[in-house]
Nucleic acid binder design. Structure first.
Lengths: 192, 192
DNA sequence: TTGACTTTACCGTCCGGACGGTACAGTAAA
DNA sequence: TTTACTGTACCGTCCGGACGGTAAAGTCAA
C-alpha cells in the first residue's frame, strides 16, 4: 500500500472504469483491464482474485469517496437546517467544478450483477432519510435529492443532455432553493 | 404480424428486458432470451438477425413509448406555459400509478455498446429545450427535468430508495411547483 | 380447386472465438 | 525471505452467429 504514487489497486480500478465507459460494461475483460493498468493478467488476478472482487471494490470506492466528501461538507455546517441537502449540492458542485469525468464503473458492476448495487441502495436510503429529517420541508428535500440524482445519472450514463451553463444554472438554482435565509447569512457562502 | 396476441417481437423485447434486469445486462444471452420468449434461438435470430439489432429495438421501443405518452399528455394542454413540464410529470405519474415495473432493457443496450444511448441523448436534449422554451423559469424547468430524470434513473437501476409514499410526495410536489396558477384553473386538474 | 411456387416463421446443430480462471516458473525490490 | 508482481501456457465454458432444414400460410395462374 503505497501513498506517494497511485496504488496498484487504484490504477486497476481506474482502468476498469475507463474501459467500461469506452466499450461498455459487457466488454470489460480482465485482459483489457490488466493491459490498461499496465500490468499482467497474473498481476491483476493477484490483486483482485476474481472479477467479482474487482467490481465490488469499484462500488465500494465510489460510495466511500462520495461519503468522505459529503461528511467534509457537512462538518462545516453544524447540523443546521437543510445542511445535508446543502452539503449534497456542494459535493456535486465540487465534482463538477473540478471537472472530474468520473467514469465510476458502478455501471459495470451493476451490469455484471444487479446485486452489486445493494450497498448504494442502502447508502442512498440512509442519506435520503437524513436529508428529510434535517429539512424544513421533506418534499423539497425529496426534490433536491432527485435533482442531484438526475445530474448524477446523466453523468453515469455519459449524457451531455445539459450544457455546461445548464449544469451551473441547475446547481445555482438548487443552491438558492435551499440557501440559508437567516439574517446572519444574507447571501450564499463563497466557500465553494 | 398478428395483432390479437403479443407480437413475437414484443415477446422477445420483453423477455430480453426481464432477463437483463434479473441477471444483469452482461449475462443477457440470446439463448436465454429465446427460451424466455418461448422460441428457439434460430427463431430469435430470424426476428432479430443480430444481438445489436435486438438491443437497438429495445432502445427504440423505450423512446417511442415515452414519446407517445408525452405527446398525448401535451395534446390536452395546448402549448400553455409549463405544459411540457407538466406533461412529463404526468407521464411519469401515469407509469407510476399503473405500477409499470419497466424493465426497459436500455441498460442492457448501453452495457453492450455505449453508443446505443445516442438516440436517447438526442431525444432528451430536444425535450429539455422544449421544456425550457415553454417555461417561465428555465432554471426551474431544468430542476423539473432533473427531478424526473432522478426518478427514472432510480427505476432504471431498480433502486427502491424512495418508498411508495415518497414517490407520491415527490410527484405531487413537482405538480404543485408547476401547477397552473391562473385564476381560471384554481387547483390541479383531476384528469390524472 | 388444384398444383406450383413463394414467403413467413420458425427449429436444431455446429463452430470459432472470447473470456474467466488456474497453474506455475521466474524476478526484482525491500 | 517475503511481497508483489511478470509472463506463459492452458482449460472449460459460454456465446454469437452462420447455416441448413421445414412446416404452414398465402398467391396465383390454368
Amino acid at each position: 500500500m503505497r501513498a506517494a504514487t497511485l496504488t496498484t489497486k487504484d490504477k486497476i480500478l481506474q482502468a476498469a472504469a475507463e474501459i467500461a465507459m469506452e466499450v461498455g460494461p459487457v466488454h470489460l475483460s480482465l485482459d483489457a483491464v490488466a493491459r490498461r493498468a499496465g500490468l499482467s493478467k497474473g498481476g491483476l488476478l493477484y490483486t483482485f482474485p476474481t472479477k467479482a472482487k474487482l467490481l465490488e471494490a469499484l462500488v465500494e470506492h465510489h460510495v466511500a469517496e462520495f461519503d468522505e466528501s459529503l461528511r467534509m461538507q457537512e462538518a462545516r455546517r453544524n447540523h443546521k437546517v437543510n445542511s445535508v441537502v446543502q452539503a449534497c449540492i456542494e459535493v456535486y458542485r465540487a465534482e463538477f467544478v473540478l471537472n472530474e469525468p468520473e467514469p465510476s464503473g458502478i455501471l459495470a458492476a451493476i451490469a455484471n450483477d444487479p446485486s452489486f448495487i445493494d450497498p448504494i441502495r442502502r447508502y442512498n436510503k440512509q442519506l435520503l432519510d437524513r436529508m428529510k429529517e434535517n429539512s424544513e420541508d421533506p418534499t423539497m428535500a425529496l426534490i433536491a435529492f432527485l435533482t442531484i440524482e438526475g445530474l448524477r445519472s446523466l453523468k453515469l450514463l455519459d449524457m451531455d443532455t445539459l450544457t455546461h451553463e445548464d449544469q451551473i444554472a441547475a446547481i445555482d438554482g438548487l443552491r438558492q432553493l435551499f440557501a440559508p435565509c437567516d439574517p446572519d447569512k444574507p447571501s450564499q457562502p463563497a466557500t465553494g
